[in-house]
């Protein structure tokens, strides 16, 4: 039984990190209606840039600030070069454009920093917490716990940002109705700039955590893809949805791997979340927190 809980908790903790990536998607989707497929590439880009600076001998926090700056520039450029010319195009075109953006970011990141994998040490070890092992016999990684803590803090502060600040409220207005927001004088472009910046920040944090855990390498972009089933479960517009969805995906894929995997030859983590999300969609197409709606004609 304690093994079950160990797997479950490990899964939940890594699920938090999926949530973190999913959060970036949700932010951009809410504010601009764009499903930003490039969020994963942004995570990769941020992680690689950060490591790149570190390896050049730049001080940790300074590297952090520089990378964040790069992400802001990137976000603003994306808004300018990719989104603005495509405004009023069908959503699906915007989505495909962000696939293009994904390729640009992946190429650019590797062009600037090289293609070889890097290790990243952010000062927290990936080892079991002694006192938990002693008390319960379960191995819970110190790193996972810390990462989950950081993610939780980030999510909370974002939630506060959206509900308490003026900009946050403007953002929500934009999300609810672009036209109306424009009509009452909310500067849409400025808002989008801010959102992409915040999404860049989230990508950086996610990239650092994932990078520290699995190494900074191209495979990060695939990890980020796992955020997609999370979104399907949680709905594209819901921050709580992203969090709960992440937890469900994280926990279920680990449990499935451990308990189902052996029967089918293992390695099912790669597709299980997608199939789970797919089955879920068949039952509840509007997602966990979405509302059912009937197309108006």
């Amino acid at each position: 039984m304690s093994f079950f809980f160990e797997v479950l908790i490990g899964g939940l903790l890594s699920g938090v990190m999926y949530s973190l990536v999913a959060l970036g998607f949700v932010l951009i989707y809410k504010a601009s209606g764009v499903f930003n497929f490039a969020q994963g590439a942004m995570v990769f880009f941020a992680a690689l840039t950060f490591v790149g600076f570190l390896e050049m001998g730049v001080w940790f926090w300074f590297a952090f600030a520089l990378t964040l700056g790069a992400m802001v520039v990137l976000g603003l450029a994306t808004e300018r070069i990719v989104l603005r010319p495509l405004v009023n195009q069908p959503q699906i075109s915007l989505f495909m454009a962000t696939i293009g953006l994904t390729f640009v970011l992946e190429g650019l990141a590797q062009l600037l920093w090289g293609s070889q994998p890097h290790g990243l040490d952010i000062g927290i070890q990936d080892e079991p917490l002694g006192w938990i092992s002693d008390a319960t016999g379960m191995n819970i990684s110190k790193f996972d716990l810390a990462a989950a803590g950081i993610a939780a803090a980030l999510v909370t502060s974002l939630a506060l940002f959206f509900s308490r600040t003026r900009i946050g409220r403007a953002l929500r207005a934009v999300a609810d109705d672009h036209q109306a927001a424009l009509a009452v004088g909310i500067p849409l472009q400025q808002i989008w700039g801010i959102v992409w910046t915040v999404a860049g920040f989230v990508a950086l944090v996610a990239g650092m955590l994932w990078g520290a855990r699995n190494g900074v390498q191209f495979a990060l972009t695939f990890l980020a893809l796992k955020a997609l089933p999370v979104l399907i479960l949680g709905g594209f517009e819901s921050i709580p949805g992203a969090i709960v969805g992440g937890l469900i995906i994280g926990a279920s894929e680990k449990l499935a791997e451990v308990y189902l995997g052996p029967y089918v030859g293992g390695g099912i983590e790669g597709w299980f979340p997608y199939v789970l999300a797919l089955l879920f969609l068949l039952v509840r197409p509007e997602g966990l927190f979405g509302e059912k709606h009937i197309d108006r004609v």
């Binding site: 070069i81 990719v82 495509l86 293009g100 293609s115």
Partner: peptide, 23 residues
């Protein structure tokens, strides 16, 4: 790896370009 990365960038940029300019 320069060329393969450049290829990624060119492909990606072309996608955005075509979607925006000539869907």
């Amino acid at each position: 790896g320069f060329m393969s990365n450049l290829e990624l960038i060119v492909f990606g940029a072309l996608i955005v370009f075509f979607l925006a300019v000539e869907p």
